[in-house]
Nucleic acid binder design. Structure first.
Lengths: 133, 133
DNA sequence: CCTAGATCCTGTAGCGACTGCAGGATCAAG
DNA sequence: CTTGATCCTGCAGTCGCTACAGGATCTAGG
């Protein structure tokens, strides 16, 4: 598989694949005689794992740790749990923040007629004056 | 007011204030004889505006635009509305993503006993195999 | 066989929004 | 007069990419 095909298959940008290689998230792939990278199906699976983990909000460092744990068979589920466990809390907190924010912003934009001049604009008011959470 | 007091007052890091100045988000402050930055209450208000806008998810470029609109009295509310209006949608989309993610992750972590070895760990499974949204 | 365009290579610089540090100057309190 | 806090400038680093520049090589069509 060429890097382009791997990119196609996993939905990960070519540049990003090379970047992952550079920061040693992915192992150095073998090379064809012409110097081009050659990938097999196992590399595809690893990269898909990385992509999926990114989508779930894990950092590249955490993914590195997860890959280490999923590789050699000796790893314990508990360690995986430790990495994964704090995420739902973070996420819930973020959701809460965003919900408050969404209510405030859309209510404010709704009150904004679009006709008055800036000094009376509710959107500017809310940024300027209002301190309510 | 010194930069430290301004930082205290607004909750914006000193380094960040200087950064905002460098990228011309904030105007150059006047200086005391010893070369130190001196701020008045109006600078405090502007910086608080910036902070609040950041909390609401506006980019520094958008904030620059909002400041321009809120400054000279001629600005129209409609332009403000244009900048603000697309945010609630973005935010709602983000909330939706995060909710799905939170459900998936916490259900998975719950299923993870912490006792099995890595190959059977549900957390690793979900990253590795499962493709469901 | 030749050419055009696609794909690949390395290496480096840029993004946003900061954060941190080096190395020095100056201030305020005891 | 000394100590420690605060300030100054300027630059490098963070994260997770993305976008070049400038070249080499592959593949398909004529």
């Amino acid at each position: 598989m060429t890097i382009g095909q791997l990119s196609e298959l996993t939905g990960v940008n070519i540049e990003t694949i090379r970047y992952y290689e550079k920061i040693k998230l992915l192992p150095l792939p073998s090379r064809a005689a012409n110097g081009r990278r050659v990938y097999g199906p196992s590399e595809g699976r690893v990269l898909a794992f990385v992509r999926r983990s990114r989508e779930l909000g894990f950092s590249l460092d955490e993914i590195r740790a997860l890959l280490r744990l999923s590789g050699p068979e000796k790893a314990s589920c508990r360690e995986v749990r430790e990495i994964a466990a704090h995420h739902p809390d973070d996420i819930r907190a973020k959701i809460g923040d965003l919900c408050k924010l969404e209510r405030l912003l859309s209510a404010t934009v709704a009150r904004c007629s679009g006709t008055t001049t800036a000094p009376e604009c509710p959107v500017l008011d809310i940024l300027d004056v209002q301190r309510a959470k």
